[in-house]
């Protein structure tokens, strides 16, 4: 297991210049997610049209893994409704949990498969998902407590 497996180029690119970061002009949903393990906080704003994500923007201080995941999730979540995002998260959780090598529907998010070897860092990648899920559910605040150990 080498460091470059987790911190591979695509992950570093997304974390250095994350896509879908900033603020939306007219968000319909928003939430704040915290990772109590490390103190990181991520905010998300959404514009939801007909139950589907039309626009998404994250912001906040977070590690490279959380930022890269948020950036990739911004792409993957486009046009999905809450069910679609829940399915995406379930597939992602299987890949980073080591139960599935990769899933073609995840796109760039497959780059985080090396998290299978870093159980203590999985919460970092699940933070953007939990925050997005909270926003769609109309929950203002969430944490990754109780997610994967």
């Amino acid at each position: 297991m080498s460091a470059s497996e987790l911190y591979q180029r695509i992950v570093l690119e997304h974390s250095r210049a994350p896509h879908h970061f900033g603020a939306l002009a007219a968000p319909t949903h928003r939430a704040e997610g915290a990772n109590p393990l490390c103190g990181d906080t991520l905010h998300v704003e959404l514009r939801v049209v007909d139950g589907c994500v039309a626009e998404i923007a994250f912001r906040g201080e977070a590690c490279a893994i959380a930022k890269a995941t948020a950036s990739m999730l911004g792409e993957a979540a486009a046009r999905l409704d809450a069910d679609g995002i829940a399915q995406l998260e379930a597939r992602f959780a299987r890949v980073i949990g080591g139960d599935l090598e990769r899933d073609d529907t995840l796109g760039d998010l497959n780059a985080l498969a090396a998290l299978a070897n870093y159980p203590s860092r999985r919460k970092c990648a699940l933070l953007p998902f939990a925050t997005l899920r909270a926003a769609l559910a109309g929950t203002a605040k969430t944490t990754t407590e109780g997610e994967h150990r």
Binding site: S2, A3, L6, Y7, L37, C38, G39, D40, A62, C63, A64, I65, Y118, R121, C124
Partner: peptide
């Protein structure tokens, strides 16, 4: 460099440090 990324990558060099809020919010 985020503290958690630093700690994970230092571990790959054999160096064990703590990262986080150190129970001192």
């Amino acid at each position: 460099v985020h503290a958690h990324d630093l700690a994970t990558l230092l571990d790959h060099e054999g160096v064990a440090v703590r990262s986080g809020h150190h129970c001192a919010h």
